[in-house]
């Protein structure tokens, strides 16, 4: 579903590459965590998948297409196949829950009848039935994130990207969100989630891809979040060795939107 071939991304010639020769494949239906310290390249990874940026070298394939080769007028079609969820929810404060989810369908020209049928269904999937007329300000953080997830999946994308979706939520609420993401994954959607939350990664026991300084340093099928590097010994036992790199930094509390004025 998502394949990176020798992908390097350099923002600025003088500093080190944000991604450095990444080779990775995430299959259809996978649930993968993307972990690593701030600045390790997680966000760049997601931006390349969305074609917010193009790779400096190498190719990124999404659903079999080389995204760098997609003409700019076809990029919206690529993005319709990818749902995105952020740490800061990014809901429209003046629209109610139904309106926020419906917005994603309106702007791509879905008919009113389809919207009226689909949105309540999706709200039920994320556990928000009966709250369609609440405004985002009247919801808890967890509920707001559920609205954002509903909006991301309402057009039935094949891929769901989640950029620290539990970053603003307490552990109990986070578990609820993870259950929603897990349910979405079981319906066949590929989920890629960038996170710092070690409890979640450890409890889910899903694939873990760890980035550090732009390189993949770990790719485990059912991994843990750790700053230790797991090493398989010759006799088959597994142990953790301390990594020769700084520990994960604190989460940046505000992932602000870019203001281009």
């Amino acid at each position: 579903m998502i394949r990176f071939e020798h992908v390097t991304k350099i923002y600025d010639q003088k500093s080190r590459p944000a991604l450095d020769g990444i080779d990775i494949e995430i299959n259809r239906g996978d649930f993968a965590f993307l972990v690593g310290a701030s600045g390790s390249g997680k966000s760049t990874f997601l931006r390349l998948v969305l074609r917010e940026d193009r790779a400096t070298r190498g190719s990124v394939y999404v659903a079999g297409q080389n995204v760098a080769r997609i003409p700019s007028w076809r990029v919206p079609r690529l993005r319709r196949g990818i749902g995105v969820v952020f740490q800061d929810f990014r809901l429209l404060p003046n629209k109610d829950v139904f309106g926020n989810v419906a917005f994603a369908m309106q702007v791509i020209g879905k008919s009113r009848a389809v919207i009226r049928e689909t949105v309540p269904e999706v709200l039920r999937t994320v556990g928000l039935e009966g709250k369609g007329h609440r405004l985002p300000g009247e919801l808890s953080g967890g509920e707001q994130q559920r609205v954002a997830i509903a909006r991301a999946i309402v057009n039935r994308p094949g891929i769901l990207l989640a950029d620290e979706p539990t970053g603003n939520l307490d552990p109990a609420t986070s578990v609820g969100i993870m259950n929603v993401l897990d349910r979405i994954n079981q319906n066949g959607t590929t989920v890629l989630m960038a996170t710092h939350d070690d409890d979640i990664v450890n409890s889910m026991r899903r694939r873990v891809i760890e980035l550090s300084a732009g390189k993949v340093i770990r790719d485990e099928a059912a991994g843990e979040y750790t700053t230790m590097i797991p090493v398989i010994n010759a006799d088959g036992t597994r142990e953790l060795q301390p990594a020769a790199r700084p520990a994960a930094q604190a989460i940046a509390p505000f992932d602000t939107e870019e203001d281009d004025l």
Partner: peptide, 9 residues
Amino acid sequence: GIMRLVGAS
């Protein structure tokens, strides 16, 4: 921003 993300033309 949201329109871009959900693939509005």
